[in-house]
Amino acid sequence: MKNKIKEQIQSGKLRVGDRVPSEKELTEEYHVSQITTKNALAGLAEEGIVERIKGKGTFVRESNLSSSNNPLNKPKGLIGLILPSMKTKVEQEFVNYIEKYVTKNGHNLIIKITRESQFEEADAIEVFRKLEVKGMIIFPTEKENYNEAVLRLSLDKFPFVLIDRYMENILTYSVTSENEVGTLEAITYLLNKGHKNIGLVSPLITNTVTEERAKGFENAFLKRKTTINKNLWLTLEFAEISQNKTPTLIKEFLLSKPEITAVFTMNAELALYTHLVISSLKNEKGRDIELLTFDPPGISGVSFIKQDIDECSKKTVELLLEQIGGTYNPKRIYVPVKLKPSENLDMLETIIR
């Protein structure tokens, strides 16, 4: 029994910090007495392979069996992650979960941040190829066209997965959230609350993410057979999206559109800028505008659409490992999202009713 558990640690099935089956579970698995399993676990503890914590169980500890000196636990290779920034909570969560699943599968993760530069993106791809990474996970920059370096990866059939966006006319592996479905549900939610004039604040609609979310916005009105007014849409150049410029542009827009009673923003960054403006308009003009956004903005009282970052990351790593393993069958995976209405807003409506 001791040898079986050691083999599981050596193979990586049980890793440092993992819980070892209990005495009762081992008794049932090996059809032996509980005293036998107790002695086996005690023996492993004496050897320093496991640690027994009263009331919690038995856990694998760092040892010669589980250390990097063990050839069975040598990393299988490097995986490169390229992303435009680390400034949003969503991006940080993606890094957290991708690292978790890459490590769980025996690889090591290295990261390059492009800061929304296609030049930096191309440089990162070149650096990773020189480092002989086994594969890459890429969040493309928010630009009108795809980087030629990304297209080259596709032509070379180099293992990589696009996350958050995909290339419409080129077969690649990609994982993205259900942007269209999520936005349709969000706008329907606002229409059901009686909002007729709903504004949109968005980057230029030039990539698959913004296109799908814009389509979801339109479809919510089409399903209701209600006229949509695109004059209530504010689309911003990428160079205009900054802490210094964006709030001013949003304020000018909302002041010029007094009929707007609700605003949907394409992402959490734009939600933060819009919330600042809405708060100032409420204080200055007594005007109340409801805000709803894609991704949690970290603002109390604001409803949002939540992506399943854990599942997106897990699927992404699975698709990459599939390619590294020798299978090449490009596919596009959509991961469901959930509308999270603000508890504050729901409580307020209940009180009013």
Rank of each mutant, 00 (worst) to 15 (best):
A268G: 10
F94N: 03
L81E: 00
A268R: 10
E168G: 02
T226D: 14
A239M: 07
T36C: 08
K340C: 12
G57I: 06
F59K: 05
R224P: 07
Q34T: 15
T350V: 13
E284W: 05
L65R: 02
P75C: 07
P341N: 06
S177N: 08
L83V: 11
T37M: 14
A42M: 10
P330E: 01
L190H: 04
F238R: 12
S342E: 06
N192A: 08
E269V: 14
S33Y: 01
N69V: 12
E311P: 01
K100C: 06
R19C: 08
S202L: 09
A271M: 06
G216A: 06
N229H: 15
L153Y: 01
T261Q: 10
D123Q: 15
D288L: 13
T327I: 09
E46R: 12
L270E: 07
S177H: 06
E311D: 05
T103M: 10
V335F: 01
G286S: 06
A214Q: 12
K74M: 12
Y97A: 00
E99F: 11
E211T: 12
V181Y: 12
R52K: 14
E252N: 15
P75A: 09
E318I: 04
H107Q: 04
L78V: 07
E259N: 12
A186V: 09
N207I: 13
D18S: 12
V161A: 02
G43R: 12
D288T: 14
E252R: 14
D164M: 00
G57R: 03
G77I: 02
K74G: 06
L14M: 09
V175P: 00
D310E: 14
F139D: 05
L171H: 14
V127R: 07
L222Y: 15
K245N: 12
D156I: 02
T265E: 04
N64S: 14
G301N: 06
H195G: 04
R287H: 10
L41V: 07
V201Q: 02
L276W: 06
E99R: 13
I9F: 00
K340P: 08
L319K: 02
V20E: 04
T176R: 03
T226K: 15
A40Y: 02
N244H: 13
I289K: 06
G80H: 03
E126H: 14
A220W: 07
S154P: 01
L83G: 03
